[in-house]
Simulated scan of single mutants.
Amino acid sequence: MTDHTARIDHVVLWVSDPIASTEFYEKTLGTEPVRLAEFAAGQVPFPSVRLNEETIIDLMPQTMAARMKMLPGAVESAGHPVNHVCVALPADAFDALLGRLEGSAVPVSEISHDSFGARGPARRSFYFRDPDGNVFEARHYD
């Protein structure tokens, strides 16, 4: 990649069961597991899921909180409330996600229209929770 525009590389979510969380994101968002076999074998501390070629979501076990020493107070970040993470999708992927969530009996919010985001007003958006209570917004623009 030669474009030097700032981008989000990864988001780290605290989860109680990284393997179950990986399965949830694979089945609902259609993400690809990253390092899942290595995590299950005890070779890496957490698995991830690939959102796109540039962005992953790390699924950090809450049991790792005591090892978070990169900054003062980092240990206390486990369970720290994040309002939500928003994923922008093409319209067909948005509809497919909504269908998979509803088919899996995952509660979703009502559909909103014209909510503001990084690319301006989104045509449609909705919210849902993962198994650990992390809130996600799904949206599409045009």
Rank of each mutant, 00 (worst) to 15 (best):
A66C: 11
A37R: 14
H84D: 08
G42M: 01
R124N: 13
N134G: 06
K27E: 10
D114K: 11
R123F: 07
S112L: 05
M68A: 09
M70Y: 14
R139H: 11
V82T: 14
A20I: 02
V11H: 04
T63L: 04
H140R: 01
T5W: 15
T63Q: 14
E137H: 05
N83V: 06
A78V: 08
S77T: 13
A138K: 04
S115T: 12
V12K: 10
T5Q: 15
E53V: 07
R139G: 08
M60D: 09
A65G: 09
L97Q: 02
V11I: 07
F39M: 02
L101F: 09
N134K: 02
L71F: 11
T2K: 13
H113D: 12
A93H: 10
A37D: 15
V106T: 08
Y141P: 10
P131I: 00
R50G: 12
P47Q: 06
R35G: 07
P90S: 09
L101W: 04
T22F: 06
F126Y: 15
L98F: 07
S125K: 05
G117F: 03
V12Y: 12
H10G: 12
D9H: 15
F116E: 14
P81W: 13
P45F: 06
T5G: 11
F39P: 04
S104V: 00
H80P: 03
D17N: 14
R35L: 10
A118C: 04
P90K: 03
E38Y: 07
Y141G: 05
P90I: 00
E76F: 12
F128C: 02
V49G: 09
R124S: 10
G42I: 02
R124Q: 15
G79D: 10
G79V: 02
S125H: 08
A20F: 08
